[in-house]
């Protein structure tokens, strides 16, 4: 083989193994799921491999599915919002800490990601139960007379999801904060800007790309979260992921479950690509 030809083919050989794994573990199952979503299913005949839009028609016409999808959307939006509200200031503070403290705090922030999802969620269930630590504490302080309903409510699900997903927001924002010129706040200060103005006019606009990318990650993971809604939301408070699971494993209506999963995936893909486009178009001028 001439050196020229080998230079052309080497990249393919080198990426081959990873591509094969990707194809076998992601693309093929995904393709099969999409295919499955268009199959027919009956109580007695099982899965029938013939093309139909029946599953999608059922999802779009039944209010139950709409309710679940709306709930998923609501929870994801709330989780993303809280992650931004808590995560952005936290990342800013983290960025200003001395390196020793920063390491320690980073470990605390990443903590939730290091704990198994089931253990972490069950921990929240213990804290949030009507007889849990949070309710007993609030009652002991006299702030509430009746235990608050956290378990099996959207509030509980949102709290648990914010807790586990916030590290991703903090890391994304922190990464964009680190790209800031360390003198930029002093520059704005010397021009007469107040601390608040510096934040609003100088810092925030520069970390918007970080907030958006963190937001996309948090939203996508919140929308497709399974364990936290399953344990804290319980069997009645269904979201898209638990709905698909139920269709697959309880009703055994695989094609309908696949259709739910495909719709969720499509929505998330549109959101991700859309945000990416926005960031690229809006900020290509400004940031390299």
């Amino acid at each position: 083989m001439s050196p020229d030809a080998s230079a052309r083919t080497t990249p393919y050989w080198l990426t081959g193994p990873a591509l094969a794994v990707f194809l076998a573990l992601v693309i093929i199952p995904l393709g099969m799921t999409v295919l499955l979503a268009f199959y027919d299913w009956g109580q007695y005949k099982g899965i029938v491999a013939e093309f139909t839009l029946k599953n999608f028609r059922e999802i779009f016409s039944d209010g139950y599915f709409l309710e679940v999808f709306l709930r998923t959307l609501r929870i994801s939006v709330l989780v993303t919002l809280f992650a931004i509200l808590i995560g952005v200031p936290e990342a800013y503070i983290l960025n200003r800490m001395s390196p020793a403290w920063r390491g320690l705090c980073l470990l605390a922030i990443l903590g939730p990601l290091l704990v198994s999802v089931v253990a972490r969620t069950l921990g929240w269930a213990l804290l949030l139960g009507s007889n849990g630590l949070v309710n007993r504490g609030l009652m002991a302080l006299g702030l509430i007379g009746q235990p608050l309903e956290f378990m099996f409510t959207e509030t509980g699900v949102v709290i648990a999801l914010v807790h586990v997903l916030i590290p991703l927001m903090i890391l994304a924002v922190w990464a964009s904060l680190q790209r800031l010129d360390p003198q930029i706040e002093n520059a704005a200060l010397s021009l007469g800007a107040s601390r608040l103005t510096i934040w609003r006019r100088v810092i925030l606009p520069q970390i918007v790309p970080g907030i958006l990318s963190g937001g996309v990650i948090v939203f996508a993971l919140a929308a497709s979260a399974f364990a936290s809604p399953a344990i804290i939301g319980g069997r009645r408070l269904k979201v898209a992921a638990t709905l698909a699971y139920d269709e697959f494993l309880n009703t055994l209506n695989w094609p309908l479950g696949a259709a739910v999963a495909v719709l969720l995936l499509a929505a998330l893909m549109i959101l991700t690509i859309g945000t990416n486009r926005l960031v690229e178009r809006r900020y290509s001028q400004v940031f390299e």
Binding site: D181, P182, Q183, I184, N186, A187, A188, L189, S190, L191, G192, A193, S194, V202, P205, Q206, V286, F287
Partner: peptide, 19 residues
């Protein structure tokens, strides 16, 4: 306070506002 001193400063990195 530094934002009340009214001094003009040029920084080594320029510290321009990129946005």
């Amino acid at each position: 306070a530094p934002n009340k001193r009214g001094l003009g400063i040029v920084f080594q990195s320029y510290a321009l506002f990129p946005h």
